[in-house]
Structure formats: C-alpha cells, structure tokens
C-alpha cells in the first residue's frame, strides 16, 4: 500500500487532505491511490443535503454535525460551492456556518468547487467522500451547491437524500414538476417561522400523496428553523429511521453498487473526453468550419 494512503487510513489529516487534492486536481496517477481507498469504503452513512441557494443547507449541516457529535459519531462534510465559469476561480464559504466545529478532530470538513460539473457536485465529490469513509468517519454529509430544478446527481450517490426548501418559492405546480422534488427521502421546510410555511408544507404533502412510493419508504415533510436549532432533533430521528430502513431492506448493497457505477461512469466520460474528444481538437475542427456533428465524426473515425 502506498505511503500516502496508509497515513490517511491511520487517521492522518494532512495525508487524507492531500489525497482529496490529488483527486480534485485529477493529478496524474491519482487513480492508483483511489483504487486502494475505494476498497476500504462502505461503512459510512452518506447523507446528501440539497436545495436552493440560501435555503439554509450550511446552517442545517452545522446543526446536524452537532447532533451527530453529541451521539458520539465522527463526521465528514463535503461542502460544494460554484466555480466561476469565466475565471475558474471560486469562493468557498460554506465553512462560515460550521466554524464551531473547526477544532473538533473528529469532524473533517472539506470545501470543493464544482469546477465546471453541472449536476450539483464536483467530479471529485465521491472520491472525497470515499476518503472520509475509508478514514473511518461514521457519517459523511454532502452539501450540494445551491440548486434549481434539475441537479439530481446527489440522489445517485447519497444513502439518505434531504431536500431543503423554504416558504414562498413557488406554487403547488412547482412541487409536481419532475426533478429535484422527486429525489427526496426527507423533505425539510426550513425558515419555517416565515409566512407561508404551512402552505409550502401542505403543498409538498399533497404532492407526495399522489407520488408512487419508491421502495415502500414514506417521505415525510419536516419543518425546521435551523438557525435556532428547532426541528433538528426530529430530522436526526428521521435520518436514523431511514438508515435502519435502508439496512433492513438490503438497499444498502444496491445503493453502494449504484454509487460505484456512478463513479465509474464519471471516469468513463473523463477518459473519453481526454483521449478521444479533447476540447482543443474540437475547437480546432470548429474553427476550420466544421459543424458540430461532423466534428464528432472526424474525431470518432480517428480512434485506432
């Protein structure tokens, strides 16, 4: 086993943090390390938190960390913020709301930029989760970028998917559209002291009544005021119930495999783009006056 991986598995934060960097940067040869890491995964309960920008995901995450810690569990957090499409830079600020945990050695928080990925996660997210899992974290929370309607990648990788909304974002038609509202294992109406919380909660419940259940799990709508910690105990309780439901129904194994397939597909796409359709070649062919489809055909025919 490579030294870096061994150090990370022994709990050395510097080594774990560096492995995350190598994957995030897609540095030459990072796969060698990740192969070793993925073998050690499958123990953590992975919680996804998604929802609109400003809906309170980070504050809720902060509250969940506190609850899990007081129950004696170790926690990893991957907090994702958007990368600028123009400069490639990013301001990663989710930690601001989690500052009380910065000196807790059993909490590992990592901020990640999307770096051009569109599903609400970065391509490296699951590798980073895997590293935290392998380092022995009991719970890993993934906080997605603030999402709109269609960023549903989190549902493919998290064991328990929490969708956070706030009062007044839209009428009941929003709630029956496809996409983000379909992926919740638990709904949270945060900032529930605001006007319209009851209405939002009822709209969601109504929508759920006409939605066929997945795997016989009942999706509940909970109300929280994350800033004051209200409703968080109920949320933690519901997460536990989902975790147990999960284990009893042997869904864990299926989910684990889905996750591996998802990561594999991510790697496939990257490899195809890099080896067959590199952006610079596409640019060059377009500049020569080719249409998009001819461009792809020319590159496809070049495969040896």
């Amino acid at each position: 086993m490579s030294n870096l991986v061994e150090r990370a598995l022994n709990g050395e934060v510097i080594a774990g943090a560096r492995l995350m960097r190598l994957s995030d940067d897609r540095r030459e040869g990072y796969q060698v390390f990740m192969k070793e890491i993925w073998k050690k995964t499958g123990n953590a309960h992975i919680i996804g938190i998604t929802g609109a920008p400003g809906s309170g995901k980070s504050t809720l995450t902060d509250q969940l960390i506190t609850k899990f810690r007081s129950a004696g569990k170790t926690v990893g957090v991957v907090a994702i913020d958007p990368t600028s499409p123009f400069t490639g830079g990013a301001i990663l600020g989710d930690r601001i709301r989690m500052a009380t945990h910065s000196l807790d050695e059993d909490v590992f928080i990592r901020s990640v930029g999307t770096r051009g990925n569109l599903g609400g996660l970065s391509v490296s997210t699951m590798d980073i989760v895997a590293i935290m899992d392998a380092m022995g974290k009991d719970v890993v929370i993934i906080e997605t970028v603030g999402v709109g309607q269609d960023e549903v990648e989190i549902a493919m990788v998290a064991d328990t998917c929490i969708v956070v909304t706030v009062p007044g974002l839209g009428d009941d038609i929003q709630a029956i559209k496809a996409g983000i509202f379909e992926i919740a294992d638990i709904f949270v109406v945060n900032k529930s002291d605001r006007d319209g919380a009851e209405r939002t909660s009822n709209d969601l419940k109504m929508m759920l009544e006409i939605t066929p259940k997945r795997d016989e799990w009942t999706v509940e709508v909970l109300k929280t005021m994350a800033e004051k910690g209200e409703g968080v105990d109920e949320l933690v309780e519901r997460i536990h119930i989902h975790e147990n439901f999960f284990k009893e129904n042997k869904l864990k194994r299926r989910k684990l495999n889905e996750r591996l397939v998802h990561v594999a597909y991510g790697a496939v796409k990257e490899k195809i783009v890099k080896d067959i359709f590199p952006p610079e070649k596409i640019h060059a062919l377009i500049e020569e006056g080719n249409d998009p489809y001819t461009t792809v055909e020319i590159l496809w025919k070049n495969i040896k």
Partner: peptide
C-alpha cells in the same frame, strides 16, 4: 480579487483563532 484571478478561495468568516 483572488477568485477573479482563478484561485480557489476558502473564506472562514470573522473572529478565527490561530488554532482554528
């Protein structure tokens, strides 16, 4: 400014101790 220069900036907010 650092964001606009293409760096990833992690910002942690006010009143941080050296240990944190």
């Amino acid at each position: 400014a650092l964001r606009d220069a293409g760096f990833e900036v992690i910002y942690t907010g006010l009143r941080q101790t050296p240990e944190a």
